Computed example of a mutant assay.
Amino acid sequence: MYRVTSLLLALWPLFALIIAGYILRLREFPNEAFWPGAERINYFVLFPALLFSSLATAPLDNPALPRLAAAVLLALGLAWVVLLIMKRLRGWSAARFGAFAQGTLRFNTYLGLAAVGSLFGQDGLAMAALMLALMVPTVNVMSVWALTAERGVSARGLLLPIAKNPLIVACVTGALINLSGLGLPGGTDRLLGLLAAASLPLGLLCVGAALKPKELGGEIPALGWNSALRLLAVPLLAFAVAHLLQLPAMETTIIVLFFALPTAPTAYVLTRQLGGDSHLMAGIITLQTLLAAASLPLVLTLLER
């Protein structure tokens, strides 16, 4: 009972910020132009600072890292195979398959790191940043391919967005600084810490501001099964893989948590850019984010038993 209470105490402020973001945008406060600018400064400055500083000081000699990397890639690979089989059986177009694939594979990074930080502190954030270094590029490649499968995409078209992604650049440079032994001297750690501290609260407010309840109509069955797949079935798969590879308790919880997160709001932007079903994608993002307030505590509570 104590663990459940601690879990709820760690998670409810995160969803309170999401709701606050939705209400603020609904009330047009401070104004409509604020939210796109807030998202950009977080995506290009504040959030990369968090990932860079976390990886620059992460314990890369952790003996569980190879198994954690294997678990992440194996779980993503198995989920991808299931999606490809479903596409073949259901005959989905790339426009719909891209939305379903992102709804199943992508994850809300802001919510994930905020939850890990609340549960495990800096040690958990470092481990989560290492996971992101693997998951972000892999999921981005899968998402782009899913949305462009019918018309084809070149290797350049797949890899260039990854090479330009500020989150991936931050992960790679942070890891290189770590391996070089340079550290973060001269107050650099403090500067990055200040930037990082602003990232997660602002990110969660932006998640709430991006919710589109009006997009929930018309696709209820599709939204329902995709949300159940993402929020319940995929974390169960991640737990099975973590158990198979005998990951330690903290690493197991973190990988299950990331596979239990609702999909990323940025999936809507990518879907629109690549000609996918943006109405379906907006509904998936909104419903999963709302349902995650109940499913995430449930999954993590069951994990502790």
Score class of each variant (00 low, 15 high):
residue 71 A to N: 01
residue 286 T to F: 14
residue 204 L to W: 05
residue 143 S to N: 12
residue 115 A to L: 08
residue 200 L to V: 06
residue 151 R to K: 10
residue 299 V to P: 03
residue 88 R to D: 08
residue 233 A to T: 06
residue 66 P to G: 09
residue 191 L to H: 06
residue 20 A to T: 13
residue 264 A to T: 05
residue 197 A to I: 03
residue 150 E to R: 09
residue 242 A to H: 07
residue 109 T to E: 08
residue 271 T to E: 00
residue 21 G to Q: 07
residue 300 L to H: 04
residue 85 I to C: 14
residue 191 L to Q: 06
residue 111 L to H: 01
residue 258 F to W: 03
residue 257 L to K: 07
residue 119 L to N: 13
residue 224 G to Y: 12
residue 47 F to M: 05
residue 144 V to P: 01
residue 203 G to Q: 11
residue 68 L to G: 03
residue 302 L to K: 15
residue 84 L to T: 12
residue 203 G to I: 00
residue 217 G to L: 12
residue 60 L to E: 03
residue 261 L to G: 05
residue 97 F to C: 00
residue 253 T to F: 01
residue 207 V to P: 00
residue 283 G to R: 13
residue 245 L to M: 03
residue 154 S to L: 05
residue 92 W to E: 05
residue 170 A to K: 04
residue 48 P to N: 07
residue 167 L to P: 12
residue 93 S to D: 02
residue 177 I to C: 14
residue 275 G to Y: 06
residue 93 S to V: 11
residue 205 L to N: 02
residue 255 I to H: 03
residue 233 A to C: 09
residue 274 L to F: 09
residue 189 D to I: 13
residue 265 P to T: 04
residue 161 P to N: 09
residue 219 E to Y: 14
residue 125 L to D: 03
residue 264 A to F: 07
residue 166 P to D: 09
residue 87 K to Y: 00
residue 115 A to M: 12
residue 205 L to K: 12
residue 135 M to W: 08
residue 110 Y to N: 09
residue 7 L to Q: 13
residue 40 R to L: 13
residue 291 L to C: 15
residue 101 A to G: 01
residue 216 L to E: 08
residue 119 L to H: 04
residue 137 P to I: 00
residue 70 A to D: 02
residue 79 A to S: 10
residue 250 M to N: 04
residue 61 D to N: 13
residue 73 L to F: 08
residue 216 L to F: 09
residue 42 N to F: 06
residue 152 G to W: 04
residue 166 P to L: 07
residue 104 T to C: 08
residue 208 G to K: 05
residue 229 L to M: 14
residue 188 T to H: 02
residue 162 I to F: 02
residue 256 V to N: 01
residue 210 A to H: 11
residue 220 I to L: 15
residue 166 P to W: 10
residue 222 A to H: 11
residue 245 L to R: 00
residue 203 G to F: 04
residue 34 F to C: 04
residue 98 G to W: 10
residue 265 P to V: 14
residue 100 F to V: 12
residue 222 A to Q: 15
residue 32 E to A: 13
residue 266 T to L: 10
residue 51 L to D: 02
residue 303 L to E: 10
residue 293 A to D: 02
residue 158 L to M: 14
residue 249 A to L: 03
residue 219 E to G: 00
residue 9 L to P: 03
residue 78 L to T: 10
residue 232 L to G: 10
residue 55 L to T: 12
residue 153 V to P: 08
residue 253 T to H: 07
residue 293 A to V: 11
residue 279 H to E: 11
residue 4 V to M: 05
residue 95 A to F: 09
residue 75 A to R: 03
residue 79 A to I: 10
residue 286 T to Y: 12
residue 131 M to F: 10
residue 156 R to Q: 02
residue 101 A to M: 03
residue 89 L to Q: 14
residue 150 E to T: 07
residue 305 R to N: 06
residue 98 G to R: 03
residue 182 L to Q: 12
residue 15 F to Y: 15
residue 300 L to S: 05
residue 7 L to D: 06
residue 164 K to Y: 12
residue 57 T to H: 07
residue 149 A to V: 07
residue 273 Q to K: 06
residue 202 L to Y: 04
residue 222 A to S: 07
residue 271 T to K: 02
residue 201 P to Q: 03
residue 206 C to R: 08
residue 57 T to Q: 09
residue 280 L to F: 09
residue 240 A to G: 09
residue 122 Q to V: 10
residue 10 A to F: 01
residue 64 A to T: 15
residue 72 V to G: 06
